[in-house]
């Protein structure tokens, strides 16, 4: 069974007929006011139909619209590509610079490490005096010192106060 609202909508749209129409109109408390409301609703409907319906494009307008869209797409494509290319950080020049910078850092560290390592290696390859003794009876005031001449990598055991000998001792 239809509700009053459904019957009202159908009546406004002119879809009630026969006995159903007569019964509904008889049930209206103020038929004149209802007729006025029906006329207003119809006017409003016609106005909305007229104003809100999509305007049909003519052929010329349609092709012009298509062309404008295509041109806009074509213009946008290189710009998008440029944006994408710009947004990539690892460009070839930057890669080259990064490689060169890494190499420079590596060389700096290598030089520093080698400099620190060299003194130890040098001392390892210099002759070392482990100990030295002078006969205290023969040379009681003798002393010994050790020098390293790094230029020629020569190690010198320097004695002082050994007993001096006459020139005859230089014989072969």
């Amino acid at each position: 069974m239809k509700t009053f609202e459904e019957k009202w909508t159908a009546w406004v749209d002119g879809q009630l007929s026969g006995r159903e129409l007569l019964e509904f109109e008889a049930s209206l408390p103020d038929k004149a006011a209802a007729e006025a409301e029906k006329a207003g609703a119809r006017k409003l409907g016609e106005l909305l139909k007229r104003e809100l319906s999509a305007r049909t494009l003519t052929n010329e307008e349609f092709f012009s619209h298509q062309l404008r869209e295509k041109i806009a797409r074509l213009r946008e494509a290189p710009a998008r590509q440029a944006r994408e290319a710009r947004s990539t950080w690892w460009t070839i020049p930057r890669l080259l610079w990064t490689g060169a910078l890494s190499l420079a850092v590596f060389l700096v560290f290598t030089v520093l490490v080698m400099r620190e390592k060299n003194p130890a290696e040098e001392s390892q390859y210099l002759t070392q005096i482990l100990n030295a003794r002078v006969d205290p009876v023969v040379s009681p005031n003798a002393t010994v010192s050790i020098f390293e001449v790094k230029q020629d990598r020569v190690t010198v055991l320097w004695t002082e106060g050994l007993q001096s000998l006459p020139a005859d001792y230089a014989a072969k």
């Binding site: 390859y125 002759t127 070392q128 005096i129 482990l130 990598r153 190690t155 055991l157 007993q163």
Partner: peptide, 14 residues
Amino acid sequence: LLETDTKLSKRSPL
């Protein structure tokens, strides 16, 4: 006259 113990390096004269 004198006695000493040394590590004689192959690259470094004494």
